[in-house]
Design a protein around this nucleic acid. Structure first.
Lengths: 210, 210
DNA sequence: GTTATTTTGAATCATGTAGTTCAAAAATCA
DNA sequence: TGATTTTTGAACTACATGATTCAAAATAAC
């Protein structure tokens, strides 16, 4: 652990930097990037205006920092949900349930900063970050599918890349429905159904006739 | 056709009301609700400020009108895509391809007003409209699945409601990826894959062992 | 205690934005 | 042509917002 034990010389800060950033995340999450004013951040973060600019920078910089911290934390939780269960099907269910939980958390705004808010920030750096984060997410799920092949749960010609992408698409769908006010109970059910769907092998005899 | 042939008495308008509303749709679509200023609308719609207020009302009213017109048009196109093809699988593919086409149209912003912009407008009426529109969309797809049962394409115990909801979730996922800059070619491919997935019957022998 | 250093709150400034007003312009009707 | 009606462009007002400044406050080092 790198730790700075040297106490700073001047007046100590009245706020916790990490905590303030999490509060900023909530502010952006509930109001959207363009809907947030500096006054909103000052009120929500509990940091005075001059300190806010000195420590965190302007609105755009604060958003980028909050976004990065949020994505890192969420990515870690998603990976845990994905790689803890034993079977592939349960891993997918756990992954999707986690998405639903995060999107329907009491005390937070519904939805997800990465899915519902960040995509419509008109900023090249944000867009690039989202693309990278999405790629990383799909890659993570794909790896879990590959583990499923190794474990003999799905055939070796299982379309892992396609299904990984579909998994993330369905997670996004659940998240967006959460934002629109769908009930957690409903979404949890749908997460289970989605997990069942995603492990189905190709060419299951779909047609009965015609 | 109801038509008002009585020429109005005063100076004729320099703009087309319907066309101006479509232009407003584009403005909101590309900048997001909170990101749009009245000046943006004045510039984008080609309507002077006083005429804009007199004819269309304030920003919120303009958005609601644009949203309703957009949803109606999009719903009609979606229904056509869904009920024109012969087979269920092709109907789903057509529905999803339509979503991709609309979300990657040249000359429009990527994504979709209903999926990417409207959900984070902090307004009760907008939220209710979106919920209703989403329900109507799912109901439409579900009806197509039921037609598939009637036609003998899928078993009578096929989980039509679940799959309809999953179809819409996947369409939303494709739309969101379009907004994030995914290529139309990729998304079209994924639309086909999604259609294949959605018609798979339950309990296809997924497990080979363990 | 005194000094040096940093944070903080309040006040301030410049800019952007929503919404209105009003006279000029453009059309119809007599 | 002239009266009437409606639209339009430009200017204007009031307010919100982003960002900065500065002296007072709070703490460590001396």
């Amino acid at each position: 652990m790198i730790q700075n034990n040297a106490k700073p010389r001047g007046r100590p800060r009245s706020f916790d930097e990490k905590g303030a950033l999490e509060k900023a995340t909530q502010v952006f999450w509930s109001k959207g990037y363009d809907g947030v004013t500096i006054d909103d951040l000052v009120a929500g973060m509990g940091v005075g205006r001059p300190s806010l600019y000195a420590v965190f920078g302007d609105k755009r910089t604060i958003f980028l920092r909050a976004l990065r911290a949020y994505a890192e934390a969420k990515g870690a939780r998603a990976a845990k949900a994905l790689f803890s269960p034993r079977t592939l099907r349960d891993s997918l269910a756990s992954f999707l349930r986690h998405a639903v939980e995060a999107a329907t958390e009491e005390g937070s705004a519904p939805g997800c900063l990465l899915v519902c808010v960040a995509p419509l920030v008109d900023d090249a750096e944000v867009r690039q970050f989202l693309r990278d984060a999405a790629s990383a997410g799909v890659a993570l799920v794909e790896r879990r599918f590959c583990d499923g092949i190794s474990a003999g749960e799905i055939p070796s010609d299982f379309p892992v890349a396609v299904r990984a992408s579909q998994t993330v698409d369905l997670a996004r769908g659940l998240t967006m429905r959460a934002q629109m006010g769908a009930l957690r109970k409903t979404l949890m059910n749908d997460a289970e159904e989605a997990a069942d769907l995603l492990v189905l092998p190709r060419r299951g005899n779909a047609t009965l006739g015609g």
